[in-house]
Design a protein around this nucleic acid. Structure first.
Lengths: 224, 224
DNA sequence: CCGAGTGTCATTGTATACATTAGGTTCGCA
DNA sequence: TGCGAACCTAATGTATACAATGACACTCGG
């Protein structure tokens, strides 16, 4: 991968997700170039990617703004994600290898540890949660699904309120992962699909209720 | 929109879809720049878009090749398209405006004319077919769905064999469009969704059987 | 005082030159 | 003759300069 444009992409994305660049903020290429320490060329490439991921919106005259997401927009993303990721789970059920199931179990166990630590290790939770879902996507062996989900998977976290999840939410997420593993071991597509639908659906409601339940701060990703 | 990069995008895409650039062909930026009469900068932007649409594949060292699609890959695309476009139909059913329904009827009628002309007007069929589906997507009022479908909608036509559709196929497609209109007029989400699933599914089988039925050549897009 | 028009400024689009890196070829040595 | 290393070539990544275009403000006329 290219060095400068990737750094710029990550930096800009983080600025948006962290809130440094608030919704609706105008984005100037030159200003970003200076901030990122690169020229406008890699900045433009990064903006193109972010626009494709709908994190950035462009006016009719090609000026860039940080996209603003309503709750309805976020629900739509979760809906799509449920649609695509449950399809991935269904495909994965009949294709997943033994070693991939082992990897699922490894991440599942790591998530369990993260939750049950004296103080929940949110960093570890987020990381292994991501890896868990990555294995399923990999097992689905679908370039299309992979490409599409890569585009939307980071976005529900735009709203900073999504960072707050209760202990119960984490446990429920963990339990559903366990059920997914069971479905995969049985190679049952319908079961895996149904669990994934439920899993993502719950994640949405957890997100939607986040302004009420705020217990574990600094969770930097949706808990699926 | 930018002038040069858009022209380059369309030109390169057409080269791929028409077969001028065969599957697996290596793509050099400079060569394309010369062919398109622009510099490498807009070419690179165009290649980025085409890569996001999976029409172009990049090696580990960032060299570009025309993607090659197996029948399984194409089926996967149709499956995803069915998934997304049926969801769009469902959403559209409860949101579509009267004027949008009128537009659907206009395109529907135009398709009917195209089919029943002494010699079927494939150009008109393709154009109004595309517009018909565009109205539904617009009525779904989902930026996500629109963005995703825009990425995959052109691709089933990569295989040139898909250009051949029988008269019966065209009529069936037309009839299903009629049923979609009826579902929208009843504002029945489940009905609209089901018809769309069937519609896309049939399109896939028409495509898959294209090497057997080859009656109307030069159809430049899948008949959905 | 309001509106239209024009001029200036800011921002984006494109071209080109240069840097960097991968890949292939050739030469040398075992 | 086969393997490997170094060099050379070609293609991509980045920076920068320039062109074009839209935004904004200010002025002039009504």
């Amino acid at each position: 991968m290219s060095r400068a444009s990737d750094r710029a992409y990550v930096m800009i994305r983080d600025m948006i997700l962290s809130g440094d660049l608030p919704s609706g903020a105008k984005i100037g290429e030159e200003a970003l170039a200076e901030q990122c320490g690169v020229s406008r060329t890699p900045i433009r490439e990064a903006l193109g990617r972010l626009e494709a991921e709908l994190l950035i919106r462009r006016s009719d005259t090609q000026r860039s703004y940080v996209a603003d997401w309503s709750l309805e927009d976020v629900e739509e993303v979760f809906e799509l994600r449920g649609l695509l990721e449950s399809r991935a789970a269904r495909r994965a059920a009949t294709r997943i290898s033994h070693s991939q199931i082992e990897r699922l179990k490894t991440h599942h166990a790591a998530i369990g540890e993260a939750i049950n630590a004296p103080t929940p290790d949110t960093q570890q939770f987020v990381e292994h949660n991501h890896l868990f879902h990555s294995v399923i996507l990999e097992a689905s062996a679908s370039a299309e699904l992979t490409s599409m989900l890569a585009r939307i998977i980071e976005r529900p976290i735009v709203h900073r309120t999504a960072r707050n999840y209760s202990f119960d939410d984490l446990k429920r997420s963990h339990r559903q992962h366990g059920e997914l593993v069971a479905a995969f071991e049985q190679r049952d597509p319908a079961w895996a699909e149904a669990v994934m639908v439920s899993h993502i659906r719950r994640a949405f409601h957890t997100y939607a209720n986040a302004h009420i339940d705020q217990r574990i701060p600094d969770m930097s990703q949706a808990a699926e």
